[in-house]
Amino acid sequence: MESNAEQILELKSIYYAYHNMEGETRALIDISFAMKEGEFVAIVGPSGCGKSTLLSIISGLLQPEKGLIKINGKYLRESTTNIGYMLQHDQLFEWRTIYHNVILGLEIQHMLTTKTKAKAHELLDTYGLKQFENARPSELSGGMRQRAALVRTLVLEPDILLLDEPFSALDYQTRLRVGDDIGQIIKKEHKTAILVTHDLSEAISLADRVIILTPRPATIQQTLPLIFDLEKDTPLNRRNAPEFKNYFNLIWKEINGNE
């Protein structure tokens, strides 16, 4: 398979294992997939199978033992493409206000200008956090914290977004709302995104494609394109569409069939 110019991200047989004195934990085996620009992929799989590890490798935090990653046709190391990685927990710093948490990435990358600051304020406004700019993280609800963490990632204008169970800390209703919100925004801005989640309905309502991983060590069990025949393809409309239940059952069987 030749690398395609349209492919923003390409993974070719990635292997990864954790090593420590007790032995090695094999986490990823032969993971290959590619993504087109603007595509939204959801990755589902049992707990502890290696989903977070996969995102860490794509973001360059961990080096794969074997295999290669290309971004926009370049090797990950040489790539200048901006990757935004939203971790499993919001990791907002209590000693900073929400605004100062949000501009942490700008600060680190020496990109604090009047323009980027204005952008940070604007994003906080669109996500309903304007009154909380000067609040401490502990004064915010779980959903607000999650949105603040998202703003911290988005303000760096990433071309590829990696989301590691961004909504897992939220209660069910907030989760639906924030999930749908964030999904819409990512779609609207035409961002390429990978969403790791436990929640099958979240994956089905947001993604263009679902990748199902096996239990650890993770391999790709199946890749399932999601096609909805809808006039307006929003997460909410998807949840009410007849295809939704079919996809849910399909993925459910895939995951639980091999136990």
Partner: peptide, 26 residues
């Protein structure tokens, strides 16, 4: 918390950033 330091790396920070932005303040 190593996850806080990981956050710095996801924002393209260096170990020096981890020191000044996370370790010292916390």
């Amino acid at each position: 918390d190593p996850e806080k330091i990981k956050l710095i790396y996801t924002l393209q920070g260096t170990r020096l950033h981890a020191m000044t932005k996370v370790v010292l303040p916390s």
